[in-house]
Design a protein around this nucleic acid. Sequence first.
DNA 1: TTGTATGCGTTATCAT
DNA 2: ATGATAACGCATACAA
Lengths: 365, 365
Amino acid sequence: MATIREVALAAGVSIATVSRVFNKNTPVNPDTAERVLQVAGRLDYWPNSAAQGLATRCTRTFGVMLPDLFGEFYSDVIRGIDQQARVHQYQILLSSSHSNSEDVLSASRAMLGRIDGLILMAPDESSHEIVERVRRRVPVVLLSPRTRVDDCHSVGIDNFCGAKEAVAHLVSLGHRQVAFITGPEGNVDAEERLRGFRQALTEAGRDTDEALVIPGDFHESAGFDACSTILEHSPRPTAVFAANDSMAIGLLAALQRRGCRVPEDIAVVGFDNVAIAGYLNPSLTTVNVDACGLGRQAVDLMLNAMEAKPGSDPVRQVIPAVLKVRRSCGAPSGADGESGAGSVLSMSPDFPRQEPKAANRGLTS
Amino acid sequence: MATIREVALAAGVSIATVSRVFNKNTPVNPDTAERVLQVAGRLDYWPNSAAQGLATRCTRTFGVMLPDLFGEFYSDVIRGIDQQARVHQYQILLSSSHSNSEDVLSASRAMLGRIDGLILMAPDESSHEIVERVRRRVPVVLLSPRTRVDDCHSVGIDNFCGAKEAVAHLVSLGHRQVAFITGPEGNVDAEERLRGFRQALTEAGRDTDEALVIPGDFHESAGFDACSTILEHSPRPTAVFAANDSMAIGLLAALQRRGCRVPEDIAVVGFDNVAIAGYLNPSLTTVNVDACGLGRQAVDLMLNAMEAKPGSDPVRQVIPAVLKVRRSCGAPSGADGESGAGSVLSMSPDFPRQEPKAANRGLTS
DNA sequence: TTGTATGCGTTATCAT
DNA sequence: ATGATAACGCATACAA
């Protein structure tokens, strides 16, 4: 296909002029410009953006590296990143399924020269040194950073507080035996949620019964499988907090098949506030996480970082995670409590997600 | 950071040698190789892949363009693409939210020179000519192609048959009044599902009551909102087929709040077989779509296309969509039918997804 | 306003 | 086995 050289030749000008016509940063004679555009159109000339990138050292592309792509959460994060990137005319070079830091390293290398910045969710703490090596070449924004790691820009969810709030709410409803279904081992978000769970119990003057901390992996089946453990434990827990909604949903299904009523016999709370949470029966009490906003914030942070002077301090942003009370935890008291199946009147969709708003309440520390 | 030149200088060799050491395609003296690697390591040299791409005209990257990123479907498609691409050491340059062909055009241009192939889900039929322009520069694989479009490689879901099968099943259960909740206007998959719906009714000797074709948009709320229309129609439909699971779930919620029992009072069938479908109450009868497999197939097709000679015929692949009968449509007869809430015994997880298998049954035409 | 020439960081084709 | 050197396609400083 036509290159800038062929266009120049056909238009009877130099390649510099053609370049100028397209980049409109230098004045160029309207007539010649017209002619160049004409020729370019006829030849269907498309500039080679790889070459542009090499020459300008600017690719208008962000690298995005995630450990996984399962579930709505990551999907929403990507959507947020893509949305905001799009606004600023950036593209996304995606790479996921990084189980270890080796993967992160090789993927980063493959991205070198093709991105202006990297938005990275590191798989484990060992990624630390690799992050350092990457940072020397390209700006990095960390997603769900580990606390100890680095002085790097980052955006995270306030998992700890969200979880604490959720469990505190259960406690306030009178629950003494609360079980927890964990996320995959090594997952930062999941670990913080567990920490929040413990903290809430501690603050309630109870200590955690370790037998009630049931290992999970964020998938529905883990929640489903956790059911037996929960019901067979003695004394039987009256509430369960799942580290994410998928597992909460799996658990709900299992409980219902056992003839266990939710929330009457056992209360269930999830985390994430996935799209369908409000449409379940019973509707799922959960902690709202604006995954899409997380992605958008990451991009904004990146853009700021890129135009900041190298020495400036790292910005650490935390997106609030707030409890969204619905029916699965048992209505606290008044509110619009009951309703549910049976009432013909309660047709209010119980809007399952509180949109964008929350995103910008991110706290900077 | 260090470039190949600096490594060459520090190692006392030419840049050509350094290049050879890294690409191991030309024999090089073990000693000098050793020395080069040493120096490269010390300088932490990473080859610039943009420059490599320019020189080799090979980027090991696939462009992926989707109209949207909402919901599990697209997310799974991306996951499939990423998975398979990863296997072959390719990366993904992602771009979504293309509502019209203008967007597709500009995004394609921005990708030129940075991808070896483009996996494209076109937003509308007007993209036809643009696809042609793109194809002249880079191999293209179409996702969910419109039938009329081009002689281009493509992978699609067999929406028509899947939908027909679903509705035929409802008809076989005795349902005469069946409603349909459509997908977003212009969406190929959604339109094919509608076509399958109509066809099934036609084959059953009934014609479609257009008032029962209710506009939707693939979101939960559309299903929720469709409830009124459905219940108020007379004669009242005894079954509803939603163009995707999200809407089916929204509908289930609305029906339950109205005190309408599913499947006793009204049967519901969805499309997609999302992860939670089997965990709902009642579990959702739906049409299984291997979105992840779709993505993988697209990559495989692309790889084949790239090593095929330019003149060869386009490959059109269709991934089967098969009905997955669960409880929401009413058990046909025997089977493990009833159970549901109440039975303590039925703890079989009702595996919600039939994994990979189906993907490779893709039919080539 | 326009053209010339150099550089971006590689790979690859020649020589040697 | 290794070293010059010409691409790759474009942007841009400098000259004119």
